[in-house]
Design a binder for these strands. Structure first.
Lengths: 216, 216, 216, 216
DNA sequence: AATGAATGAGGATTCATTCAT
DNA sequence: CATGAATGAATCCTCATTCAT
């Protein structure tokens, strides 16, 4: 500990061949992601991925036991990144500002999703994943559930079934984003995104508004 | 003449030989559907499908030019069937009863979707579809848009952007159903479905309720 | 006789289905020839041939036991036609005019060959025929052998080994024609053909000229 | 070191594993050649070839992108070998000895061709080659053209159109050889070959002899 | 750790041929 | 005679994975 070896960082990074294993894994994942998006998963061979990562084919298997495992890692990474960005967006608002946090969540969600649809689709919709797609029971939902419950506890809104509500809201978001993509490259993407964000936000509000019946 | 053998017709139609082409195509599609659900598309070979349809491998290509074409046919069939069932459900209510029709739509949608998730998923989420998934711009959405607009015109509810609303509602439905599936086989599926149907219906109502803001 | 039915000839040729079997066979051969030239033998399916002859696939097998048999028939027809044309050309000269007849043979040979190389090649060079190519022992050679022997007997020229000489001459012709084809579509095909014909004729003459050695 | 076991190298090269790539390619080509001759190209599967070369099927594609590419390589190899042998034969005579060189060319040509007809035929006459057969414009012709021109320049003979003459001579050779093959296994192949060689040589001389007309 | 040659199961597709109608 | 639906053997080629170096 006291005496850091002379080849401190470089030594770790590499002499010639051997690189930080993490680096290699990341390179592999990056290459795969890119290729999967470009050509689809079945059309992308391990060869391609290895080549893309500037690595020999055999090396691939040093870091991932199979193609499927790589896909799993990619899915994990996608979800993690996604969540992190939403969390960040929310955290730009004070903990108690539930409405603001929810709005931030929606907007960041739409934004992030739209920025990564291609990847999302390829990673979650192809290739018979054990657990299909970025599931409703995933971390993003959990995140939202938490927020909904907090708001409910604070009396900002009333949510009967937080999970189901989160599912609904999340899928509404998902769908609006998909629809944007389906429209193809839009003339005014910025305006379009804003329009969608607004519709969603309004929608969320509606959904969380207490029943008329109760009040009336 | 006196004793026509019991296998009279079979004898004519014959052990193995020409059948109504439609029959064959349907048999192929049915077999494919079943296998796709069971093993996934990539894992299902044409051989399997042909065998499942009790047909020689080459016969497959008499009815479908490729595996992909078959998938297309399956998608088409899925959407058509889905729509038909929703329409039917709606039509059980008088044309002017918009709320009732919407509720019927929701319930039938959830029901039908849940009855066919496996198929839906396999048919729409695998295999690099040109147009990914049962799109938001599909016939189901169109159906809903129509209903929303009619109700709006009749003053039953107010919808600003019918399409976007339809997208949101449809995806909410989609998501709630997916979530049900993700939960796995439930102890009391009937009750669970009812619960979800109720949540969705309530949600739809909320969403279509006029803004508070307007009143305020 | 008095009242020739309106479908006089047609009646004979066919009522609806059944046609003179020879007609059918010829149609099949014609279609095959065309397709073989255009796409090659392996790339031409029986289906294609049948379609080309406006006949059902099964009908093909009514006239030819196999694809290979058809090829044989095509080869036969090619040789026959070829020979007939050469004979015709020779017969335009009096029986005793051996030099003239030989010249006619050469010219007609070049001409005819060039007009049919594509067919020749496809029919004789593809598909592992039992007896490969328009053989040296074929009728054309025989024809030439006869002529050479007659001329020899008449003292017009001296030929030691008529067959070998015929083989040589025939192949010279073959080669010159092939070379013309290999050159691709020529600027002035007529002039080119003439040039080749002349070279060949001169060559034939040389070859049949008595040895110097004999004179010396 | 003193006593290197006899299987020294094999031990290193190993039971079955990486070999000199050239070795593999050659083994594949050899196997293919043999099989093509024996069964014809279409009837020879990649499987067969791989098996013949003691290699796994997939390995084939490591060395040749397709069956067709392999055929190309085989053609190349044939021509190269052929030419080399003719060149060798010619070079056994002094550069200035044109007649001797020509005679050597003819004899070696016949000899070599006869030793390889089967291969020649299979490699050049089957399978819709882009450029059909061992063409007249190939290297062998070029070789002959060169010789003819040199002799012409040296006044040994007179050749008007060297290329056309070469084509004729080459094809004469070709034909005589083919004829020999067509005759089937001969009783006295040696004598027969000699006879043919003589006929060809005499023929070549005739062809290159100056015109009588000039003298007369 | 890294390499990349070798493997061989597996898949989609074609097509000559048969035969019930 | 004619038809064309049905057959299924056969082929080329891909690619995930292994393993000797």
């Amino acid at each position: 500990m006291t005496s850091s070896s002379p080849d401190d960082v470089p030594a770790t990074a590499a002499r010639r061949r051997t690189k930080a294993p993490q680096t290699r894994a990341v390179a592999l994942m990056d290459a795969a992601e890119q290729l999967f998006i470009a050509k689809g998963i079945p059309a992308t061979s391990i060869d391609d991925i290895a080549a893309g990562a500037q690595v020999a084919k055999g090396t691939f298997y040093l870091y991932f036991p199979s193609k499927e495992a790589l896909l799993g890692a990619l899915q994990q990474r996608f979800v993690d990144t996604f969540c992190a960005r939403l969390q960040e967006a929310m955290d730009r608002h004070a903990p108690g500002k539930y409405r603001a946090r929810l709005k931030a969540w929606v907007e960041a969600g739409l934004e992030t999703y739209l920025d990564n649809v291609a990847l999302h689709d390829v990673v979650f919709h192809e290739y018979r994943p054990e657990d299909r797609r970025m599931r409703n029971d995933n971390v993003v939902i959990t995140q939202l559930v938490t927020l909904l419950k907090q708001g409910d506890a604070a009396g900002v809104w009333e949510v009967e079934d937080a999970t189901l509500t989160a599912v609904i809201l999340f899928n509404a978001l998902h769908g609006v984003a998909d629809d944007a993509v389906a429209m193809g490259p839009h003339a005014n993407p910025v305006a379009d995104r804003r329009r969608r964000a607004r519709a969603l936000a309004r929608f969320f509000e509606q959904a969380l508004r207490p029943d008329d019946s109760d009040d009336a």
